[in-house]
């Protein structure tokens, strides 16, 4: 079983207030630390578990600037057999362009694989399109929001995908296929700093993304960045704890849910 896993290095923005530069020209990420996209971490763990069980090889691939090597080293430390960087100026913003580059890379370099794993979405752009778009170009079967892999069979895999309202769908897909993996599918193992240091000794291959971009340009353009529209704000109850609590109980009473 050979699995390709696509990984993205993203800004760690959860605890930050993001600043927009100038008149909406760009988002300032200069003070933010970077990390592996959370969803991709689950995808990577799931791929490694699959080959630990079924045998085979995980190849971690990242599209982006040279710093994306960080996530490849981490992947190797976690258990991937190989790390590959498709080097570009930056991670391509247009989901179409990104998937086209990845698909051409896979075809041109002649990878032999049973499955491609991606995270459901990236924390930064939240397009949630990479796996699906790639599967579409490659004309491979696709399942998204996978929350469990139940069985690797001969030429197929049985998975569960997450729907709304706690409902799940059981799906059988033939291999090779593309699966996008949802968070919570597993508990990713810890990767230590010393593990990453050891992994650094394994060479990561670098391919130039320009090799796969001939005749294709970005199909979307950001004209402006803006802050979310401020909705009519909430009525703020008093700042002292006791006053706020008493007013809160009064509201609950008025609404008829609490005496």
């Amino acid at each position: 079983m050979n699995i390709l896993v696509f990984l993205k290095r993203v800004a760690s923005s959860q605890e930050e207030e993001l600043k927009i530069l100038g008149e909406g020209e760009a988002v300032d990420l200069s003070r933010l630390p970077f990390k592996l996209n959370d969803w991709d971490n689950y995808a990577l763990e799931e791929a490694i578990r699959a080959v630990e069980k079924e045998g085979g090889h995980v190849i971690a691939i990242s599209l982006g600037a040279k710093e994306s090597d960080d996530v490849l080293r981490r992947a190797i430390a976690m258990g991937a057999g190989e790390g590959i960087l498709i080097l570009g100026e930056e991670a391509l913003f247009d989901p179409r362009l990104r998937a086209i580059v990845a698909s051409r890379f896979i075809k041109k370099e002649g990878f032999n694989f049973d499955a491609i794993f991606t995270g459901v979405q990236a924390e930064d752009d939240q397009f949630g399109t990479f796996g699906g778009y790639l599967a579409g170009i490659l004309e491979l079967p696709y399942v998204s929001m996978v929350v469990a892999i139940e069985e690797w069979g001969k030429g197929y895999v049985l998975v569960r995908r997450e729907l709304e309202g706690g409902l799940m769908e059981k799906v059988k897909v033939s291999l090779p296929s593309v699966l996008s993996i949802q968070t919570g599918i597993n508990e990713p193992r810890y990767v230590s700093v010393m593990g990453i240091r050891r992994a650094s000794q394994i060479e990561r291959k670098i391919y130039e993304s320009s090799l796969y971009m001939e005749g294709v340009i970005s199909s979307i353009e950001v004209l402006k960045w803006s802050y979310p529209p401020k909705k009519e704000g909430a009525k703020i109850l008093p700042y002292d704890i006791d006053g706020a609590c008493r007013e809160l109980l009064q509201i609950l009473k008025e609404r008829g849910v609490c005496q």
């Binding site: 760690s12 630390p33 990390k35 976690m78 193992r189 810890y190 990767v191 230590s192 010393m194 593990g195």
Partner: peptide, 22 residues
């Protein structure tokens, strides 16, 4: 245990946070 990766998620989070956000 840390090197094997077999540690509880809460400890894991504390360590990962210390690596990323220091």
């Amino acid at each position: 245990l840390v090197e094997s990766g077999r540690i509880s998620t809460s400890i894991q989070r504390a360590l990962e946070n210390s690596l990323i956000q220091k």
